[in-house]
């Protein structure tokens, strides 16, 4: 297991029960414009999709499915794009750094086994962050407010 994979696992463990600093930073973003709600909402949608996408990549690597170079490069580009979104859209700097480092490592892996280990660790980390994004949204209150707004139309 690579040093980076161990670090990612360590981040996931640290964020297991305690809210990570990245989430605290995300919750500050756009507060001054009154639109932090949009940040939380979009982060939920973003991670909802990225966790499923990365899981698919992980399963393909685990099954040694398809061309190794193509899968490796596709995964690396995806990790890079996710990392950049963490910074620009959500102000989550630890996640940004981890994902960019993972992208660099993905480009360098020598075989399916290394790629599988890396993707597994990243995917599990993203799931943890997804659940923290989920906990950041006051779902019941938002649903109640939405129902009030929509009531005249329904």
């Amino acid at each position: 297991m690579s040093q980076l994979t161990k670090e990612i696992e360590s981040y996931t463990k640290k964020a297991w029960l305690d809210q990570p600093e990245d989430i605290e930073a995300m919750l500050q973003f756009n507060q001054e414009t009154g639109r932090n709600f949009v940040v939380v909402l979009y982060l939920n949608g973003f991670l909802d999709n990225m966790t499923i996408l990365l899981y698919d990549y992980y399963l393909r690597a685990k099954a040694e499915e398809g061309d190794f170079e193509a899968l490796k490069n596709m995964a690396a580009r995806q990790l890079r794009d996710i990392g950049n979104s963490f910074k620009s859209d959500y102000h989550m700097s630890d996640s940004h750094t981890l994902l960019l480092r993972a992208a660099c490592e993905a480009y360098e892996v020598k075989g399916f086994e290394e790629l599988t280990e890396l993707l597994k660790a990243v995917q599990q980390y993203l799931v943890r962050m997804f659940y923290w994004a989920d906990l950041s949204m006051p779902w019941k209150e938002m649903c109640d407010a939405y129902n009030q707004i929509k009531k005249p139309e329904w």
Binding site: W16, L17, L59, Q124, R128, Y131, D134, L135
Partner: peptide
């Protein structure tokens, strides 16, 4: 192990929590 519970958003009468386990 311990985890934090969440409530399902699309289905109803379901709760969930992440585990440290992969079972694919």
């Amino acid at each position: 192990f311990e985890s934090r519970v969440g409530y399902a958003k699309l289905a109803n009468r379901e709760f969930f929590f992440q585990t440290p386990v992969f079972a694919d």
